[in-house]
Design a binder for these strands. Structure first.
Lengths: 320, 320
DNA sequence: TTGTACGCGTTATCAC
DNA sequence: GTGATAACGCGTACAA
């Protein structure tokens, strides 16, 4: 592999001339053409590490994602990538498979790698997360959870829950079941649930609440044992689309086809419309969230200061 | 951000001592303890770029993935990551959203970034791909497509198709429909189809073949218009699980519930068992493929030479 | 327009 | 066990 000095020698110029050719331009037409050819022939590529070392910046953004096979993650990263492309940042993904320690590890790695900024799709922010993030000398933007000391983009989960609650109340459904998730996840476990309860409360409905897992398979177990002895719900709501799908899977086999409950989920996962009858799901604007997050990050990189939390609206595309 | 010289100054030693402390060891107990403390206090992290520049190697593996929200990609990367963790490589993902130019771009970027090796999940290998890969001075392993000049890991798509064909023939189904994909995708578009046809041929069955898209939505359109006037198939096979799901979606609404066709897909996507009735799908061993690919890459990095194509078996977990 | 000299942060070599 | 020094590849004042 050739370096800038090799190229300079071949061209019979100094390496600063080659460097100028590569960056600003300011070289004579003659040497320009000579270099065009030589660099092409030797397919020379400047060493990115030497560049970064020198420039003290890498033009890279690191993104930490909890998992891959997820509509939410996919869409969010689409948004992030779009802005990255515009701003000429390289996007690197680090995937933690929902492991909290791997998140910490990834944060430290990106910090050490001196990426220009980090996008962190969080499911939970522990004290350890906070400690590591505060020590970092690279700006971080969190997507999906909020924390007063950090730079965050969140979805309006309370509103999402509230909208569903109101829609259900208006249609005068009576018996409502909710499968929620752990309260360590503030966004989904707490706010979404509270929104729903408040929305229902206006109609004097109190849902029956259980807690289950984000994972379809585990949710299916919980849902099955839970609903086995109580099949008279008008509406069953899953805190996520995965959970709603588990509910669908179980209730689909109810003997009495006519009395199947209405099923509602959150997240706008396209799988919800593959099943029949399609599941009603609240649309989250993940792409937009990704774009906003990356723009925020860009500002942090320039200004070094955090701004307020950004809240992305949700939309309820369905009518009950 | 402090560097090794700062730390050395604070400790009152030379930077070579600090470097030794960080790497081999060979320092006195006294200075060791001193450095323990100082490095902790200043949370000093060695600059990765300077290290790589010096070492001429990055300990990083770049992976190029076509999309994120996919069971196949998710599982494959799990396998790759597992081996990476064992070998102490960092894994970087670059996601191309199924854009061929972005793949080329990603290959060049990783080459310039001097990662130690590249894992490339390909849907297609064009001349342009070949040209770029051949110019690279970093080993590349392809997953999912084969090419005589390249280092590849593939699934046994012919066998997968053949197994399905034989199972169908044995059950004496008669009218068989197959929704395939473009033949530019050798693995899925050609081999899977040929396997199926050969498997069926043994039973003198000739399937009716159409071509459609990998994407669920587009497949649904094609499937709908195709099946609208021909609802008397015993078996309908989709070249991928997405296509099979589209078939399910359409045929589920057939008025005559009793005469619903059997549906078969390929890929083992968990979504196929969420729908009811569950779709029969051929299991692909993506995690294993990822592991094999990464092991191959590791060998290439050490030896600089390519070995034979690795073929990963498929399994047919269902009986018809 | 072109070339010289230096520094980015790290590690390896070789004296001491 | 420790410290000075060169080298990794590049960009950029500064001088020519």
């Amino acid at each position: 592999m050739k370096n800038i000095t090799d190229i300079a020698k071949i061209a019979g110029v100094s390496k600063s001339t080659v460097s100028r050719y590569l960056n600003n331009g300011s070289v004579s037409n003659k040497t320009k053409q000579k270099l065009d050819k030589i660099i092409e022939e030797n397919d020379y590529q400047p060493n990115q590490f030497a560049r970064s070392l020198r420039a003290q910046s890498t033009n890279m953004i690191g993104a930490i994602i909890p998992r891959m096979n997820s509509h939410a993650v996919d869409e969010t990263i689409k948004g992030v990538k779009k802005v990255c492309d515009n701003l000429n940042y390289r996007l690197l993904l680090n995937y933690t498979n929902l492991h909290s320690e791997l998140e910490i590890d990834a944060l430290e790695t990106f910090n050490r790698s001196k990426v220009d900024g980090v996008i962190f799709m969080a499911t939970e922010i522990t004290d350890k997360h906070l400690e590591v993030i505060n020590k970092m000398n690279v700006p971080v933007v969190i997507i999906g959870q909020e924390h007063p000391q950090l730079n965050c983009v969140i979805h309006d989960d309370y509103q999402a829950g509230y909208m569903v609650g109101k829609l259900i109340g208006q249609k005068s459904y009576k018996k409502v079941k909710y499968f929620g998730v752990t309260e360590t996840d503030i966004a989904v476990g707490v706010k979404r649930k509270n929104g729903l309860c408040d929305g229902l409360k206006a109609f004097e409905i109190e849902p029956v609440i259980s807690e289950t897992s984000f994972h379809y398979k585990e949710a299916l177990k919980d849902v099955s044992s839970d609903l086995e002895n109580a099949r008279d719900y008008d509406v069953i709501i899953g805190a996520t689309d995965s959970i709603a799908l588990a509910v669908h899977k179980f209730t689909f086999d109810y003997e009495d086809k006519l009395q199947q409950p209405l099923i509602v989920g959150f997240g706008g996962d396209p799988v919800t419309e593959i099943v029949t009858p399609a599941i009603n799901t609240v649309e989250y604007h993940f792409v937009e969230a990704g774009e906003i997050a990356m723009s925020k990050l860009q500002r942090s990189i320039k200004n070094q200061q955090k701004d307020d939390i950004s809240v992305v609206d949700v939309t309820c595309a369905f009518k009950l």
